[in-house]
Computed example of a mutant assay.
Amino acid sequence: MLDIVIEARQASLGPGMEVKRILPFRQRRMVGPFIFMDHAGPVKVNPSASKNIDVLPHPHIGLSTVSYLFGGQVTHRDSLGVEQVIKPGEVNWMTAGKGIAHSERFEDPAVLAGGELEMLQTWVALPEKDEESDPSFINYKSEILPVYTDKGVWMRLIAGDAFGLGNTVKTHSPLFYLHASIQQGARFGLPKEHPERAVYIAKGELEVSGRSYRAGQMLVFTPGVDPILVAKEASTLMLLGGEPLGERFIWWNFVSSRKERIEQAKADWKSGKIILPPNDNQEFVPLPEDKFKPAGSPPPQALS
């Protein structure tokens, strides 16, 4: 029934910004097209140190970054000239394609001081035909994201299709991504439309086939199996998955079906071919000097 249980690992993005890293995992690098997942927060930082946790401009290729907040707010700036504040329940969907750079700034000291900031960052690998597409960015407001409810169950469809719902968030391959709030004692299942499916427990505790699982674990289920999940306490979950895309290489913030394309991206970032955000171009994250490692052993990534 369960292919694997992934334990979130602690990763540091800088002073005061510790995250739980779920994907990639050495024994299970992807779930459907999802190849990366970080859970940050709740973050509480002295306002005087808030600058230290900003994610400076950095590059991506071959993927879409998906930002979703439980609390707080973050300012996104990218090399297309976009500047967007994302708030809880909204979706920032940035497709890197052939190359983009962006930053994530935490510019409200009150949010940080109050411990309100909590966010999920995922990367969705692109099909080979879209890996060299033009970069793009769209912010989707919470009002346009459909909600599924059942007894003790509330779920917001962030992207894709699930439980008969669909939305206008533009994706490049079949997938689903849901934010779920489950009351204690509620029983629920997974969407049946997709072969690869997983549940990340952000808060709370679940029972599956008589065994309990806790916050910080991702449960990856066997294709074709339809488990019944029971909330042992009030729980916040992220449900995700979709159609697998095949092997992908991942190094730093780059994803590609071709190893040589990642080498080119490294050269492009060092040479300035991937331009910085025009309204955030005074600093950036330099390319790590690590030599290329086998897939599944990337150096620390940026948050998104």
Rank of each mutant, 00 (worst) to 15 (best):
282 Q>L: 11
217 Q>Y: 09
210 G>M: 03
246 G>P: 05
207 E>W: 03
281 N>G: 15
79 S>C: 07
20 K>C: 03
100 I>G: 09
297 S>D: 14
29 R>D: 10
39 H>T: 10
192 K>A: 15
253 N>F: 07
134 D>R: 08
170 K>Q: 14
193 E>H: 06
284 F>M: 12
54 D>S: 03
186 A>E: 06
244 P>L: 11
105 R>V: 04
238 M>R: 05
141 K>P: 00
163 F>R: 07
288 P>W: 03
120 L>P: 03
159 A>H: 01
15 P>Y: 03
89 G>N: 12
244 P>M: 04
83 E>K: 10
44 K>I: 07
30 M>R: 14
111 V>S: 07
246 G>F: 02
94 M>T: 08
120 L>N: 01
5 V>H: 06
296 G>Y: 10
41 G>R: 08
3 D>C: 09
258 R>C: 07
46 N>S: 14
4 I>H: 09
11 A>W: 04
175 L>C: 05
5 V>R: 10
234 A>G: 13
263 E>M: 12
229 L>H: 07
155 M>G: 03
205 E>Q: 13
54 D>P: 00
300 P>Q: 08
101 A>M: 02
127 P>R: 11
38 D>K: 11
267 A>W: 07
293 K>W: 06
258 R>I: 11
160 G>T: 07
151 K>G: 02
219 L>K: 04
67 S>F: 05
67 S>M: 12
152 G>A: 00
67 S>G: 11
120 L>S: 01
202 A>R: 07
244 P>Q: 01
87 K>T: 13
156 R>E: 06
62 G>Y: 08
302 A>M: 15
92 N>A: 11
